[in-house]
Amino acid sequence: MSTAPVSATSRSWRATSPRSPSSQILAPGAQLEDLITTLHYRFKRDAGLSPEEILDKKESLLGVLRPVSTDDNLAVFEEAGFTSYGTILKYLAFEGFIAIK
Rank of each mutant, 00 (worst) to 15 (best):
A27V: 06
R42Y: 07
I54K: 06
L49G: 04
P51V: 04
S10M: 14
S84Y: 13
E95L: 08
V76T: 13
L74V: 09
W13C: 03
Q24F: 05
R11G: 01
V64Y: 02
T3L: 12
A75D: 09
L74I: 05
A8D: 09
T37L: 15
S60G: 04
P21M: 06
K101I: 07
T70I: 15
V6M: 03
I88E: 03
A30I: 15
S10V: 07
A99H: 02
N73Q: 15
L32T: 09
G63Y: 15
G96I: 11
F97N: 04
I25K: 11
Y85A: 01
R14L: 11
F94R: 10
G48K: 09
M1W: 10
E95W: 03
T70N: 01
E78D: 06
R14M: 06
V6E: 02
L74E: 15
L92T: 00
S22V: 11
L49I: 03
S50M: 14
T70Q: 07
D56T: 10
N73A: 15
L26V: 05
E53G: 05
I100A: 02
R19T: 05
R66D: 02
D56Q: 14
S50Y: 10
T3C: 04
L62V: 12
T83V: 15
G48I: 14
L55Y: 10
L39A: 02
I25Y: 01
A8I: 05
L49P: 11
K58T: 12
R42M: 11
S12I: 15
G29I: 08
P67Q: 06
T70A: 05
P51Y: 11
